[in-house]
Amino acid sequence: MTDSGAALRGLLIDLDGTLYNGRQMVDGADTLIHMLRARSARYLFVTNNSSASPETVADRLNAMGIPAEPQDVCTSAQAAASYIAERQKGARVFVVGEEGLRNALTDQGLQVVEDNPDIVVQGIDRSLTYDRLSTAVRHILGGAAYVLTNPDVLLPSDGELLPGAGTIAAMLRTATGVEPALIGKPSAILMNFALERLGLTAAETWVVGDNPATDIAAAQASGCYSALVLTGLATKDNYNRLLQAAGVIADAVFDDLHKLKLHVDDKLQRSIN
């Protein structure tokens, strides 16, 4: 483990595999968040999931015993909507995705349309049809820009793996030959959006997650300190191999959330003092 050079002031915390697995809270997730609240630390739950609204995510966390408010949640859908609105205010967008993505786009004043879009925005869409896929291809080939919320090929769901947003993106890439603007982890775009919401610099912020290819890579891309927890995808047996495969180095590795909590608590106290 290496130590962060700057004072720790905030955390960007992954969800699935880090704070919970499926519908089961990871041991210590509740006490970690209670400690952060007690220390008045700034943090956000940062997720590549584009389908759920912040309200839905917060409800899910609270139901598991992890305290959360909608304003604590930062999704790839919100970051995608902000990214588009900053570049083309009021843009016309065709959506391949679900309610959380549509709501995030309209919240930013973007127009969700079926015809003549400026941009095709794509996330996970569990009701995807061949006709909708064909329409997206037609729009992209016709000149619409292509924005992808997140590259996750597989989506964990109740103990099984289902096709994710990255699987749909593979079809659109193959059909159009167009590479999308990638918003979610491992891109720095989602992390920079979250940092702006926290009001902190990368040097003051830790990224906590269980996936070297997304969480740790995103931390590295954005210049944040990275803490890998062996609570989900990464385990004691495979984390070195996963780090090597992703081509990244974790600044710290913690066996569980209890050890992370102790270290973070110490760092926060020293930052305050």
Rank of each mutant, 00 (worst) to 15 (best):
Ser187Pro: 10
Asp16Ala: 07
Thr201Met: 09
Ala144Lys: 00
Asp158Gln: 12
Met171Tyr: 12
Gln244Tyr: 08
Ile189Tyr: 05
Leu154Met: 15
His263Tyr: 11
Phe254Gln: 00
Thr75Ile: 09
Ala252Phe: 07
Thr205Cys: 00
Ile13His: 01
Asn240Val: 13
Thr31His: 10
Thr167Arg: 07
Leu200Met: 03
Gln111Tyr: 08
Glu86Gly: 12
Val208Asn: 01
Ser53Pro: 12
Ser53Gly: 12
Leu195Tyr: 04
Val57Trp: 07
Val112Glu: 04
Leu148Arg: 04
Asp237Trp: 01
Val57Glu: 09
Ser127Ala: 14
Arg138Asp: 08
Thr201His: 08
Pro151Tyr: 01
Ala81Pro: 04
Arg9Val: 07
Ser53His: 09
Ile124Arg: 14
His258Ala: 14
Gln122Leu: 11
Tyr146Val: 03
Ala7His: 12
Pro117Cys: 07
Thr56Glu: 14
Asp251His: 11
Ile216Thr: 00
Gly232Ala: 06
Gly143Ser: 00
Ala6Val: 04
Thr174Gly: 13
Asn103Gly: 13
Gly209Asn: 04
Met25Thr: 00
Pro163Leu: 11
Ser226Gly: 05
Pro212Val: 03
Arg126Thr: 13
Asp255Lys: 01
Asn103Met: 15
Asn48Val: 12
Asn116Pro: 07
Thr174Trp: 14
Gly209Ala: 01
Val120Asn: 05
Glu196His: 15
His258Glu: 10
Arg173Tyr: 04
Ala41His: 00
Tyr130Arg: 07
Gln111Leu: 14
Val93Thr: 07
Leu15His: 01
Glu86Trp: 08
Thr167Ala: 15
Gly177Thr: 09
Asn49Pro: 04
Ile249Thr: 15
Ile272Asn: 09
Phe193Pro: 04
Arg60His: 15
Tyr225His: 08
Tyr83Pro: 06
Leu233Lys: 12
Glu98Ile: 02
Asp210Ile: 09
His258Gln: 11
Glu69Lys: 13
Gln108Asp: 08
Met25Gln: 05
Leu141Val: 10
Asn273Ser: 11
Leu228Trp: 02
Val264Arg: 04
Ala165Cys: 08
Asp107Phe: 13
Asp237Met: 05
Gly143Val: 06
Ser40Glu: 15
Thr47Asn: 02
Val248Phe: 06
Asp215Ala: 04
Arg23Tyr: 09
Ala221Val: 08
Thr2Gly: 15
Glu98Val: 00
Ala170Glu: 01
Gln111His: 09
Met1Asn: 11
Arg241His: 11
Leu32His: 01
Ala169Asp: 14
Met191Glu: 02
Gln24Gly: 11
Ala188Phe: 03
Ser187Asn: 03
Tyr83Ile: 08
Asp27His: 12
Ala79Gln: 10
Asp215Asn: 09
Gly223Gln: 11
Leu105Gly: 06
Thr106Asp: 03
Arg138Phe: 14
Val96Phe: 10
Ala202Val: 08
Arg42Val: 13
Tyr146Asn: 05
Ala85Asp: 05
Gly232Phe: 00
Asp125Ala: 07
Pro180Phe: 02
Ala245Met: 09
Gly199His: 07
Gln111Arg: 12
Val26Lys: 11
Leu44Lys: 01
Leu15Asn: 07
Met1Ala: 10
